[in-house]
Design a binder for these strands. Sequence first.
DNA 1: CAAGTTGCCTAAAGGTATTAGGCAACTGCA
DNA 2: TGCAGTTGCCTAATACCTTTAGGCAACTTG
Lengths: 189, 189
Amino acid sequence: MVRVGLTTGRLTQAGAELADEVGFDQVTVSALARRFDVKVASLYSHLKNSQDLKTKIALLALEELADRGAAALAGRAGKDALTALANVYRDYAREHPGRYAAAQLRLDPETAAASAGGRHAQMTRAILRGYDLTEPDQTHAVRLLGSVFHGYVSLEMAGGFSHSTPDTQETWPRILDALDALLRNWPAP
Amino acid sequence: MVRVGLTTGRLTQAGAELADEVGFDQVTVSALARRFDVKVASLYSHLKNSQDLKTKIALLALEELADRGAAALAGRAGKDALTALANVYRDYAREHPGRYAAAQLRLDPETAAASAGGRHAQMTRAILRGYDLTEPDQTHAVRLLGSVFHGYVSLEMAGGFSHSTPDTQETWPRILDALDALLRNWPAP
DNA sequence: CAAGTTGCCTAAAGGTATTAGGCAACTGCA
DNA sequence: TGCAGTTGCCTAATACCTTTAGGCAACTTG
């Protein structure tokens, strides 16, 4: 009997790759076992269950995304920062659709608290330092930006924009122009 | 043997209710059969397969959502219309989380073309008649609004906003204020 | 009311999830 | 180097979901 050397980390990594290849909801303990040429039951020494696997992939994706965001944000401010962070999300979703889908997985509160989710909110808030917003409008703006980033990327991935005339290539920078303009002229309550 | 009177329509309707109760991805042919107190195989006279059921629920949700949108939009313009349509999406997601999730299901192109999806884009475009935008900015704005509506509702449903200070109750109208202001002052290219 | 259609059933095969218990391959210590 | 303990992957088994094939009873229609 040859030992393959399974670990939780390798399984999570392979699960993420599998997600990108076949879609996050096709990620299954069985498929992962096949990929390692190992019997299904063997994975249960490293994973609590199927949900656990999905959660670990989601946490990995959130972490990777936060790392990329931090790198992109370094040394930038204002619209430059806005564009950089926005592109991180969009590019990540294009490169790693399965992982991006995983990052949307609903986590239970404790897991979410321990995840990189907080870093994402912090990064969006950091962008707003380049604009003149105070609380509570800053929080509203954080949520707006989060909604646009996530919403746009989701709809684009789902093909929601693919049939109409202006290319989505063209729309994205214009939306960032619009958000920049909005943040510079945030309406009074 | 008593006949229950299954039809595709009744199955779809019940599937939508099931989705709202247990979540869209817990919707299963078996669960639906249990709900009708009928053997699983019996459903396959009315449904092609499990994917077919999910697709039909998605189409139902898109239709219902479009109907509500059309009703809300009637006789309104400008910010009034913007608020009305935005609230349709948000309220629908709160009332029918399973159906709302179903509406995000990725449909194959032919199915999507035959769905109420087009009505949604049309409604968003109708809102913009109250603002002074011409092509291609109008299309960009349609996509922005779609992104915000979908993105905000998704994040709110996922609990993404639940831990921070200003209530999401407070953020939503402020985001609509912001979008209204943005549409009135859309930046030149 | 007979003939045809159709709705729901039984049966069966294949896939995924999960647990329990076993043996072989590693680890570390004498 | 060899032994004891640990651990990794296996076999076996159960349960549930999906899907197809074929049958009989209940409707519908003339």
